Each structure stands twice: as C-alpha cells, then as structure tokens.
Computed example of a mutant assay.
Amino acid sequence: MDVQLVIDIHRHLDAPRDRVFRAFVDEDELTAWFGPFAAFVVPGTLSIDPRAGGHRRLTMATFSGSMSWSVDTTYTEVVENERLVGSEQVTGIAAFEGEPPFTVRLEFFDEKGGTRVELRAGPCSRDMEATSRDFWMQSFSKLDSLLARTTGPDPY
C-alpha cells in the first residue's frame, strides 16, 4: 500500500434515521440503490446478515455483464439505526487487487429534516480512495432518489 488514506464522507439524506438505516441492511432496499452509475446493478447476488459476525456479500455488474466486481463485508459492530462497522474486501477492481481488507464505518444521526450519514473507510491507497469516494458519492445520489420515491412527507 503506497499511502494510507481514510475516506471521510458526510451526507444529509431527507428521510428519518430508521428509514435510512433500513436502506443499508435490507436486501431489496440495497439492491435498489447500491453501486455507482445507473448502469450498475446488483443482479440477485446479495446476502445480508446485519449483526456482529454477520456479513454483506454482493456482486455488482453492468447491465451488459461486461464488467463486474464483488464486495464482501464482515460486520464487526451493528447497532440498529445507529452504526454499521465492518471489514471489507473488494475483488474485480484494479485499484483494490492485492490490497488487504479495510474498515468501513457508517454512522447515522438525526439531523433537522432527515438523517446525516457519516462514512469513514480505510486505510486505503490513493487509487482505492479515489475509486471508493466516486463509488460512494454516486451510490448516495441513487439512495437520495430512492428515498425521495419511498418516503412520504412528515404528517406532523
């Protein structure tokens, strides 16, 4: 690993914290938004067991199937509606090949008008950091769209 960097992304989402958390741990929800660009999908190859010692395993692919990669996460800490922490290994992307697993930490906070998600991941090389940051920013945009379609206005 050439340089050890940490990815640090904070994102506001216009939905209650329990709704946002569910989008990260429910197979149908995650399938609907996880992955970069609209051209990537999780084609039925997803398994989530959201508990300490559990996992998230998935393969992403282009619609044409010309490109795919796998993400295998072992959860080390899960606190419902608050935190997901795990060790993650990515295969099939050049920036991650030969790299050891890295830690991904997602925290969920109530924030006026919705939820703030704080993501920290690393340590990672410069190439891993750039690829992961792009991936997460695009995925969060897809999550924004999903939440806008599935979260109604607050009745109060």
Rank of each mutant, 00 (worst) to 15 (best):
M1I: 08
D2V: 00
D2R: 05
D2T: 13
I9H: 02
I9W: 10
L13F: 13
D14S: 13
D18G: 03
R19K: 12
F21L: 10
F21H: 05
F21Y: 15
F24L: 04
V25E: 07
E27Q: 12
L30K: 12
F34M: 11
F37Y: 05
A38M: 06
A38F: 01
A39Y: 04
F40E: 03
V41T: 14
V41E: 10
G44W: 00
I48K: 06
D49I: 07
R56E: 00
R56H: 11
R57Q: 05
T62A: 10
F63H: 15
G65N: 12
S66N: 14
S68L: 07
V71K: 00
T73L: 07
T73S: 14
Y75G: 02
T76F: 01
E82D: 15
L84M: 08
V85Y: 01
G86Y: 11
G92F: 01
G92H: 06
A94Q: 08
A95T: 02
A95H: 06
E97D: 11
G98C: 03
P101C: 06
P101N: 04
F102S: 08
T103V: 15
T103P: 00
E107C: 12
E107L: 05
F108E: 05
F109I: 01
E111P: 00
K112Y: 00
G113D: 04
T115I: 03
R120E: 14
A121V: 03
P123A: 15
P123V: 07
C124G: 15
C124D: 05
C124W: 07
C124F: 08
D127T: 10
M128T: 11
S132T: 14
S132G: 12
S132N: 13
S132V: 05
R133H: 14
R133W: 13
R133D: 09
F135R: 13
S145E: 14
L146H: 06
A148L: 08
P153A: 06
D154H: 02
D154E: 09
Y156S: 10
